[in-house]
Design a protein around this nucleic acid. Structure first.
Length: 480
RNA sequence: CGGGGCGUGGCGCAGCUCGGUAGCGCACCUGCUUUGGGAGCAGGGGGCCGCUGGUUCGAAUCCAGUCGCCCCGACCA
């Protein structure tokens, strides 16, 4: 089943596909561009979902579910929105054996149907704010697809909120960006840069789009999540108004924000190595796997029994543990398989360990092994898992720093991009023309205008491409 | 849509140039020996060769068409 994977250094894309398939995160489905998320990949998604959902609830949001099918006419109500999404819509034209009066669009996102409902639900300032999230699937007919990173159908969460004032909407937009960043860094051990999208890159229908940008293991950028301040665009398009305290009718202010199963691809590309996936302990479906080692039947009975006993203790301590007691694989084979799947900590229990009343542990992120006494095993395993979680984050931060470059002129820009890759902090004149020209010449895009830039990046300068005045530096990179 | 590649047991492939009734590795089943870094030997099961049509005594192989997938470019979370 797992017959070796392409090395990252040979071909990063193939490495990625090999790991996704062989670690059984996902598999191709019969329909082009769509995929099956297998139980191991879905287990990871469930853990992500739980971590995000908890944060949404803590910030006052509630979940609901809106339908998959949207009247085609809804998509046309907001001008930029139609333009942005029409090329990638899947449309149902026939149903029940007949042609439909009005075609139904399979949601690429739910703004339109949600705002159509909000019109009914919002009348008074007392109805605000509305803070609803939904977990759903969406369909976007992409030309080129890649497992988890860009598929025709994907799973995500989309928050849609309505507020009385522009200030509240902006605060919500920023708050959810912070929630995402916290989730990425705390749970995924993936450092992200919070930023604003340029007008060229912002969401179709948004006033302003914030994003979190992460660096993958090949130094390319990946947009990991977005939070949009939609202003009154959708409220006006769907005529959603409320009566303020002073009796005046006003349009509401909106936000929307989402993250997707792309997170799974991001996680793999941030932490993975030539041996496969590396799961951060907080999200790992299996945090520790126990492999019994034995020669004789008696040893087998004893070590397997001890493995289950230790597993029981760990489970009692809230650790997600799995005992690999399959007799048809040798230990070495099992090690390789669990490494491919990225289980952060492996425990081995053999005859020697039984004697010593200990287990042997091996970290996935480093070649570091050591014995742990069974006495106090919960605490020592928890401690090791936390160490791994921190180490993964620190390693990713270091990698990003090593691959972030400041450049001052165009030749330097091109040579750094070509020879080193990574994130480039450079001056930009703020125009879409320059942004597009740079993209056409180098394939690099402005990933974002960072929010938490240091003073050295906020000094004025000259645009790296046009030489025109620039207020500050932005991040350029090749992206997914 | 343009360029490239590929469809042959579950998976990965060979066979196709030069038609003759399908093979290899892994996986699977049985048995014995093994088991602290991807075990060994022996025996065994499984495939209308993507689909359709044509040429031929005979097609995985030649011809025409068709469908699908993957990779690279134009769109995007």
């Amino acid at each position: 089943m797992s017959q070796g994977i392409t090395k990252q250094s040979e071909d990063f894309s193939r490495w990625y596909t090999d790991v996704v398939l062989q670690a059984q995160l996902a598999d191709y489905s019969p329909v082009k561009g769509s995929m099956v998320i297998r139980p191991y990949g879905y287990g990871l998604w469930e853990n992500m979902r739980d971590g995000l959902d908890r944060r949404f609830k803590e910030t006052g949001h509630v979940n609901a579910y809106f339908p998959l099918l949207i009247p085609e006419s809804f998509m046309k109500k907001e001008a930029e929105h139609v333009e942005g999404f029409s090329p990638e819509l899947a449309v149902v034209t026939h149903a029940g054996g007949k042609k439909l009066e009005e075609p139904l669009v399979i949601r690429p996102t739910s703004e339109t149907i949600i705002w159509d409902m909000y019109r009914k639900w919002i009348q008074s300032h007392r109805d605000l704010p509305v803070l609803i999230n939904q977990w759903a699937n969406v369909v976007r007919w992409e030309m080129r697809t890649r497992l988890f990173l860009r598929t025709t159908e994907f799973l995500w969460q989309e928050g849609h909120t309505a507020h009385a004032t522009a200030e509240e909407a902006e605060a919500e937009t920023r708050q959810m960006l912070d929630v995402y960043a916290d989730f990425c860094e705390t749970e995924m051990a993936m450092p992200v840069i919070k930023g604003i999208k340029t007008d060229h890159e912002k969401f179709a229908g948004a006033v302003r789009t914030y994003c979190i940008e992460a660096m993958m293991g090949d130094t390319k950028g990946l947009q990991a999540g977005t939070s949009h301040n939609l202003g009154q665009n959708f409220a006006k398009a769907f005529d959603v108004t409320y009566q303020a305290e002073d009796g005046e009718r006003k349009h509401v202010y909106a936000t929307s924000w989402g993250v997707t199963t792309r997170f799974i691809g991001a996680l793999l590309m941030v932490h993975g190595d030539d041996d496969g996936m590396i799961m951060p302990p907080r999200l790992a479906p299996i945090q520790t796997v126990i492999v019994p080692i034995y020669k004789t039947d008696e040893e087998r009975t004893a070590t397997v029994e001890e493995a289950h006993r230790v597993a029981g203790i760990l489970k009692g301590g809230g650790i997600r543990v799995h005992v690999d007691d399959r007799d048809n694989f040798k230990p070495g084979w099992k090690y390789a398989e669990w490494e491919l799947k990225g289980v952060p900590l492996r425990l081995e229990i053999g005859p020697k360990d039984l004697e010593k009343r200990s287990v042997f542990s091996a970290r996935r992120d480093k070649r570091e092994k050591k014995g742990l006494p069974v006495e106090g095993i919960v605490a020592s395993v928890q401690e090791r898992l936390e160490t791994i979680q921190t180490a993964l984050f620190e390693r990713a931060v270091k990698f990003r720093e090593e691959n972030t470059h400041r450049v001052e002129n165009w030749n330097h820009f091109k040579s750094v991009l070509e020879k080193k890759g990574g994130f480039i902090l450079a001056h930009w004149d703020g125009t879409t023309e320059t942004e597009v020209a740079i993209q056409e010449e180098t394939k690099a895009t402005i990933r974002c205008i960072p929010l938490d830039a240091g003073p050295e990046d906020l000094e004025p300068g000259e645009c790296v491409f046009s030489g025109k005045p620039s207020k500050r530096r932005v991040i350029f990179a090749k992206g997914y």
